[in-house]
């Protein structure tokens, strides 16, 4: 265990491959840690689930809301401008031509859904975030290409300097290091 210089964000363990990380994640969850995160260069299926970190995802609801809102908004736009404000009688064709309005309604719902997906994602993952203490971890620049990490935050109720360090070492990582904040 290293000397701490006052403020620590947490500890981070480094792994060689995704299987070891996934295994370590399961054990971290079983040990009761709640503020643990995996870091991998690519999407590792089941990693967030293993950490118990895949709950409360609202993106699908955002998208559903966006689709409905976009569709209704674009339909009303056509209805209000085309049938209420400026009805144009061309050869006695129906003023409320809802069938023909469906195409723009469809485009509106796709646009609404897409924008809502973006909004939901940004709100949930809290990016853009220019600075984060995790970037202080040694070798962390490899997290985007070739190494796998497991971090446990100091805010975790189970976190204690000695025990957590030993726990992380028991996961057989290639390295455990401290992350300053």
């Amino acid at each position: 265990m290293p000397e701490t210089n006052g403020c620590i964000y947490g500890y981070i363990a480094e792994f060689e491959d995704s299987e070891s990380l996934l295994e370590a994640a399961h054990r971290t969850r079983e040990a009761g840690f709640r503020r643990a995160r995996g870091h991998s260069p690519y999407y590792v299926e089941g990693l967030a689930d293993a950490l118990g970190d895949n709950t409360g995802d609202l993106i699908a609801w955002y998208v559903l809301g966006g689709i409905l809102l976009g569709g209704v908004a674009f339909f009303l736009l056509q209805f209000i401008t085309g049938a209420v404000w400026y009805p144009l009688n061309i050869g006695a064709r129906p003023i409320v031509a809802w069938q023909a309005w469906m195409i723009i309604t469809f485009e509106g719902s796709v646009l609404g859904g897409g924008l809502a997906a973006l909004l939901g994602l940004v709100l949930q993952i809290q990016l853009p975030l220019p600075y984060h203490p995790i970037f202080n971890a040694p070798d962390f620049h490899l997290a985007s290409s070739s190494r796998f990490f497991l971090s446990i935050e100091a805010r975790d109720p189970l976190f204690d300097e000695e025990g957590t360090w030993q726990f992380l070492e028991s996961l057989e990582p290639t390295k455990v290091s401290e992350v300053t904040c």
Partner: peptide, 15 residues
């Protein structure tokens, strides 16, 4: 500020 976070991956994947 992408930090390869497992939670972010999950959300991004789904999105």
């Amino acid at each position: 500020g992408w930090r390869s976070d497992s939670n972010h991956w999950e959300r991004l994947h789904k999105t």
